[in-house]
Structures are given as C-alpha cells and as structure tokens.
C-alpha cells in the first residue's frame, strides 16, 4: 500500500478502536440476536442446529448494518469528507480502504465471535467451520454494499433506519449464498464449492460496485 492509503487505513482503524468500542457493540448485538432466537423458536437443539447457520448469518447482517451509518457521516459532520474529496486521491479507492478498515474493526470481530456463538446453537465442528468461513468471505460484501447505503444517507440526520431498508434488498443474494454454502457443507445436497464460489464472486462484485456507487453518491452529496 502506498503512503496515503496506509495513513488513511491506520487513521480509520485507530478511530474505530478509540471511539466507543464499535467492534464490541457489534459483537454484543450479534450475541443479543443469537440469544433471543431460542426464546422465539424454543430450545429444541435439533431445530437450532438446523437453522443455526441462518441465525448466525442474519445476526451478522443486522450487526453489520448497525454500525454502517457512521461510516461517512462522522467525516462529513466535521468537514473531513470535503477535504478528502479535494485530497487528489481517487475517491473510489479511499472508500474501498475505509470499508476495509471498517470491516476489520467491526466485521472481523463478528467472524471471530461466530464459532463461539455457534456453540449456543448446537452446531457441530464442521458446520461451525463452514459458517465461519462463509462469514469471513461474505461479510466484506455486506460492508461494501452497505457503503452504498451509507453514502446515500450521509446527509440525513437519522439515516440509520433508511440505510437498512435500502441495503437489505441488495444484500439478499449474499445472505442466500452465505447460508446455502454453509448448509451445503452440512447436508450436502449440492457440493459446497458451488455456492461458496458464487459467494466469493458476489464479494468481488461488491468490491467494484460498492466503491464506485458510493463515490458517485458522495460527490453528489457534497454541498
């Protein structure tokens, strides 16, 4: 990474570690979601094992959405975003790096917490590994797609809820293939690799579309 990219990456990582422990809040929310599910569907361990990957994926999706509204808003409020657009660096790359830092600060902890939470859901080691692997590959896509929503709602005072509404339809494919490939590893109705590779492809597509669309939205929102 060149100097400016590294500087941005470090800054964003530092900020998210120092302010409010956003990683911790995300993981706590993830834990809370996973905890309430058995209260809803009952403590049947077989049922939980069957729907476990889905619960973990939905929990991760919601936890990711939760932290996204501050992705650009904090920088917009204090004028940093204006200066970033004038910095002479490609805005798409700036966004990609910000997303990477954001994912490491908030998405990666969810991936790390997933095997632990999988124990609550009675997942066996294979499915535990499969879910964790799919989350590792899939959650970056959620952050990148979410960045589009974050940049569209950046000027709104309370954009968090709208962000979720805008992003969830776009995130459905990621959810489908994340859960499918986790299920495929357990029940094998289809080979694990088929949905898993599609999931990888979705992440790569998101890595292109997300920054381009967000950059366009941020440019238009400047005023």
């Amino acid at each position: 990474m060149t100097g400016w990219a590294m500087a941005l990456f470090q800054r964003d990582l530092r900020l998210s570690v120092r302010i409010g422990g956003s990683a911790l809040v995300g993981v706590l929310f993830f834990l809370a979601v996973v905890t309430v599910i058995p209260f809803g569907v009952g403590p049947d361990l077989n049922l939980l094992a069957r729907i476990g990957p889905a619960i973990l994926w939905i929990g991760a999706l919601l936890a990711t959405l939760l932290g996204l509204d501050r992705l650009f808003q904090a920088d917009r409020e204090d004028g940093t975003l204006d200066l970033m657009m004038m910095a002479g660096r490609p805005l798409e790359l700036v966004i990609l790096i910000k997303c990477l830092a954001h994912w490491i600060a908030t998405g990666l902890p969810l991936v790390v917490a997933a095997p632990l939470l999988a124990i609550f859901l009675n997942l066996d080691p294979v499915s535990m590994g499969a879910v964790t692997l799919t989350l590792l590959v899939g959650t970056p896509a959620l952050t990148l797609i979410g960045a589009i929503g974050a940049s569209l709602t950046v000027s709104l005072r309370r954009g968090g809820l709208l962000l979720a509404v805008l992003v969830i339809p776009l995130a459905i494919p990621v959810l489908i293939f994340g859960v499918s490939s986790a299920d495929a590893a357990i029940h094998d109705p289809v080979p694990f690799l088929t949905p898993f590779l599609i999931l990888c492809a979705l992440t790569l597509i998101a890595a292109v579309v997300g920054p381009i669309a967000s950059a366009a939205a941020l440019r238009f929102s400047a005023d």
Binding site: L15, R18, D78, L83
Partner: peptide, 15 residues
Amino acid sequence: QAHYFGHQDAVKPAL
C-alpha cells in the same frame, strides 16, 4: 491543488 480552510476544522478529537 488547493487547500480549503473553512468553518469546519476537520479535527478528530480521538486522535
């Protein structure tokens, strides 16, 4: 090629 020095300080309190 310009610096903008506006009303907002773009200073991060946490750093």
